[in-house]
Design a protein around this nucleic acid. Sequence first.
DNA 1: CTCCGTGCCTGTGAGC
DNA 2: TGCTCACAGGCACGGA
Length: 282
Amino acid sequence: MPELPEVESITRILNGCLPGKTIIGTKFFFAGMLGGQTADDFAGQLCGKQIMAVKRRGKYLHFYLAGGKILEVHLRMTGAFFFFSEGRPADQYIRAIFFLGGGSELHFRDIRKFGTFRLWDKEVLDSFNQQRLGPDPLEDIGDFHFFQEVLGRKPQSCLKAFLLDQKNLAGMGNIYTDEALFRACLSPLRRVGTLSESDQLSLMQAIQEVLREGITCGGVSVSNYEDPYGRPGSFQDRLMVYRRDKEPCPRCGHKISRQVVAGRGTYFCPVCQLDKEVSGYN
DNA sequence: CTCCGTGCCTGTGAGC
DNA sequence: TGCTCACAGGCACGGA
C-alpha cells in the first residue's frame, strides 16, 4: 500500500515528465472514485489543461493544472499510475486513462477501487489540508523542538494511533509506523506523553530514517506496488517486523508479536520494544 | 472534542 | 484437493 515513500517516488517520476504536457482526453471506468462528480464533469475540467507540476502532500498526489485547478489523487491501498507504453498493459483494473498531447497515455490502475480523484481550487484545498493534515515528517520536521511540540498536542494517544493519524503527521501508514517504532525501540502501545526527551529524539530520527530509506529503495512492494514504469521497490527486503510475527526479532531473537492496536495489525518485538509505561519502568 | 465502529472493495491464504 | 470466508487496510463519516 502506498505510503509517503511510495507516493514520493511516484511524484518524482511524474513531475519529471508530465509538466508541459496537455491532457487532451480522459476516460473513467469507475465513477465511484470521483467523489460524487460525473466523468463528464471531470473531463470538462481536465481536457485541454496543461499539467504544470505534480506534487505530494502527505499521501496525496496533486496535479497542478493550468488555469488554477488542482487534481488530487489518493491511491489508498492499491492505486497506481502507469505509463501505458512503458508500464504494464491495460487490464480490467484500469479505472481511468489520461490521454496526453504527443500520444502518450497515463493509466490509473486500482484493484480495490478505494482510490479517489477530486478537483480543487488551490485556496480551498490549502485551507482544507490545514485542518486534515499535520506536518510532513520529511519536509516540515527539521527542528526537534517542533517535533516535540507536535508530540505535545496528543499526550494521551498511544504511539501507533498517533503516527497513523494524518492530522498529527502526514504520510505514515501501517508499515512505516511499525518499522519506525521498532527502530526507535518504542512500544506501539506507549502513550505519547510518557516519552522521555531521548525517546522523542529516537522516534524522530527513526521516522525520518525509515522514510528516507524507503524512498531510496523505491518503496515497499507488499501489495504489488509498482512505480509508473512498472518497477517494484525493494524496501520489503529491509522490513524488520512488519508481517514477521512468530519470526525471531533481528535485534534480540525473541519472537515478533502481532496484536491489533488502533484497529490495525501491529507487529513489534515485545522485548526490544518493551512498554516501559505499562511495566512501570519509568 | 475524542474515541470507536462501519463501509468501501477484491485478492489472498488459512482452515475445513 | 477444492472450496469458503475472514482478513487486509486508509480514510470519511456517523454515532456515542
